[in-house]
Design a protein around this nucleic acid. Structure first.
Lengths: 225, 225
DNA sequence: AATTTCATGTAATTCGTTACATGATTCC
DNA sequence: GGAATCATGTAACGAATTACATGAAATT
């Protein structure tokens, strides 16, 4: 039960849905798919993979050598390829279409959004609207708090709060555009590489309603630096 | 050495610089001063206060009763008021004017910004410019990564990244305006209440360059809810 | 009298990172 | 043959949360 993260688990499932991969590659892909707002290290990823295997959502496969020699297992370190099971696929789709309260939090939402291509417009609409409600709640609280404390706080603190509110407002406008797009059903969408999923008409024009951290020194990965 | 947080420590020092307080009140103030982007629980705050005392930056004082009875210490739970020492004050000012690499990370920067009123324009300028550089670096990486992966990723993922970049760009514009303001010497502007600020054109007038999480169920506190 | 809010703390748990340990493969 | 990068893992630590434990003061 240790080492679960929700987001990591979800993203791993989503990436493996496209194609089987081993851990090292998975981490690189994670950091470009989610990388803008989230990064994970091996110390998190490998243990997480183990628990996903234990849950029956993944299976480990010995990697094929460059020549198709029969999986060199002994005497050298195994290179493990992870493949999504049918149960794993099902679980991922459950997660993707879930609309519990958590589904609309910043990172949860961003992670779901990154895999929107793998779900139906119906689900996308619900998630986008749920996210919007969450932000509007947040905004309401921020406005109240701002009104209550504006007298007592100095200008820089106030400015910080004002800008925070504007950021949230901006995200709400974004969501409005995305929702509009979904509703209009314009899809110019080219399916992702691995694609999968009947993602017929989907349409969307807007984008990410989150931006978040990426504060960390960026252990991202490939090229760069 | 356990239980330190940098940001929490810094903010506690900054708030106590204004006036002595006990832990309970401190937490409330924390969540309105920094609350937009950061919240702390008692489980973090109280142990942190202990280490600050151990470092000599705070001293504990028994609280005065409502009547000025001499500090009812025995037989009932002490209500501890924390007061900043001279060393603590000095340490806070050091922290505030420090320009190490950490100083420009999202939350660090926001925390410093919230206490900008307690430092010199000189320091403010350096921090704002440092922050801007950091964001420009970030942007550069994001653009590279975007260019490298745009072929392989599906539209929603791409949109997520695009919006992320726009958010950072927006923050940079904000910083530019703040820096302009500081340079012009209008730093005591009070855009808050009456002003309402720049509707559309002219963008925003100053403000927080971060907005961040506040995902948590908001243990904020007072009124609200 | 009961409930809420004030007030202080500790223990267990969660989520994650960095540093370490190990070794194969590929490029120069 | 040496460096970089691919590849997999573990141990120690860090930062913060939630749930628990306790109790006083104010409000209704």
């Amino acid at each position: 039960m240790s080492r679960r993260s929700g987001i990591l688990e979800f993203a791993v499932l989503g990436l493996l849905r496209e194609s089987p991969m081993h851990g090292y590659e998975l981490r690189k892909r994670l950091n470009t798919s989610l990388g803008v707002f989230r990064a994970f290290s091996y110390g998190t990823l490998y243990p997480c993979l183990k628990t996903l295997v234990a849950s029956g959502w993944l299976i480990e496969e010995p990697a094929a050598g460059p020549s198709d020699a029969p999986a060199p297992l002994t005497g050298r370190r195994a290179k493990i390829v992870y493949r999504l099971t049918a149960e794993g696929k099902e679980h991922f789709e459950d997660l993707l279409s879930q609309t519990g309260p958590d589904a609309y939090e910043d990172e949860h939402f961003a992670a779901r959004f990154a895999f929107f291509g793998q779900t139906s417009r119906d689900v996308r609409m619900r998630v986008l609207e749920g996210r919007r409600s969450r932000l509007e709640e947040r905004l309401e609280k921020m406005r109240l708090s701002f009104a209550r404390t504006r007298e007592r706080l100095d200008d820089y603190t106030l400015e910080l709060q004002r800008h925070g509110m504007e950021s949230v407002e901006r995200e709400v406008r974004w969501l409005n555009e995305l929702i509009e797009s979904e509703r209009a059903g314009r899809d110019q969408r080219k399916p992702g590489p691995g694609d999968a999923a009947q993602q017929d008409t989907s349409g969307e024009t807007g984008g990410l309603p989150r931006h978040r951290d990426s504060t960390r020194p960026d252990p991202s990965d490939d090229t760069a630096t």
